[in-house]
């Protein structure tokens, strides 16, 4: 690792904080069996009131219980596994594909660009819900399928935005200059365009994490992803949203978990970008 890079990164306190939180959440996911105070799937008889209402935070159940009388804290800790997996894999893939397609289309233009962008149009109109329902019946439900479907759907937005940015960037003086000096396409794309696209990728990488985690729940609801009782953050929100006014903790805590995670990734991403290329201000 470039020592200057490390030095610059270590000086960025917000970035370090972001890194710390990301590591903490990943650790939580990995160590869930030891960290969770209770079995996340156990429906406790005393976890509901006699009328069947979930319990608010405090007491035996630190963050309260869900509508089945399960310990919310334990479900949040275990839920980090599914949510982080989908968030990182699916969103990561979406950002990567979107960047490749958008940047190539914007840089090369011509019939390649046209083809790529019309393919993007098709995918934007792609009825993902139908695909999810079809897959749910054919395949064994799994997180990887959810990740695949999300990646398939989410990359198009990234591609459109990256495409628009590349269109202007490709006309910039320094790109012209690099081309005049005989730099290859690959070099120009990697050295001269990518650093300028990086901020956008950070936005999609971090904000996209939130939407991905929520989308996972919507798809799992149709039967493609994690099946109950396996918890995920989005799933907890999804199954409790209509109880929101009555039991706000069921939406607030998982929502907070998603918010903190995506913020942490954003701080980390910004810090990485600055450390990579401090001239971009």
């Amino acid at each position: 690792m470039n020592p200057r890079f490390r030095q610059r990164f270590l000086r960025n306190r917000a970035g370090l904080f972001g890194l710390g939180v990301v590591l903490l959440i990943l650790g939580m996911a990995l160590l869930a069996p030891w960290l969770a105070p209770k079995d996340p799937s156990q429906q406790f008889f005393d976890g509901l009131t006699l009328e069947g209402k979930p319990l608010p935070p405090g007491g035996q159940f630190l963050l309260g219980t869900d509508t089945l009388g399960r310990d919310l804290l334990s479900r949040l800790i275990w839920g980090a596994r599914a949510s982080m997996l989908v968030g990182l894999v699916a969103n990561g893939a979406a950002v990567l594909i979107g960047m490749l397609v958008g940047a190539s289309a914007g840089y090369f233009g011509g019939w390649i660009g046209g083809l790529l962008m019309r393919f993007t149009d098709v995918m934007m109109a792609f009825p993902a819900l139908l695909l999810a329902i079809a897959l749910a019946a054919i395949l064994k439900p799994s997180l990887w399928i959810v990740a695949l479907v999300i990646a398939l759907v989410n990359w198009v937005q990234v591609a459109r935005v990256i495409y628009a940015q590349t269109l202007t960037l490709a006309q910039k003086e320094y790109v012209e200059a690099a081309r005049a000096l005989g730099a290859g396409n690959r070099r120009i794309l990697l050295r001269h365009l990518l650093p300028h696209l990086f901020p956008t990728l950070v936005v999609y990488g971090s904000l996209g994490l939130s939407t991905t985690v929520l989308l996972e729940a919507a798809l799992s609801f149709l039967g493609v992803g994690v099946q109950p009782p396996t918890p995920s953050w989005g799933g907890i929100i999804n199954e409790s949203q209509s109880y929101f006014t009555d039991a706000p903790w069921l939406v607030a805590f998982p929502g907070l978990a998603i918010l903190v995670t995506s913020l942490a990734f954003n701080l980390l991403g910004d810090a990485l970008r600055e450390a990579l290329d401090p001239t971009l201000r």
């Binding site: 904000l207 939130s210 929520l214 929101f244 006014t245 995506s262």
Partner: peptide, 22 residues
């Protein structure tokens, strides 16, 4: 602004809608 932006995106829409209505 960063915090608000992220909160807006992370907020579950159904709950947000109910809250606005309420």
């Amino acid at each position: 602004i960063m915090l608000l932006s992220f909160a807006g995106v992370a907020a579950p829409q159904f709950a947000l809608g109910l809250l606005l209505l309420y």
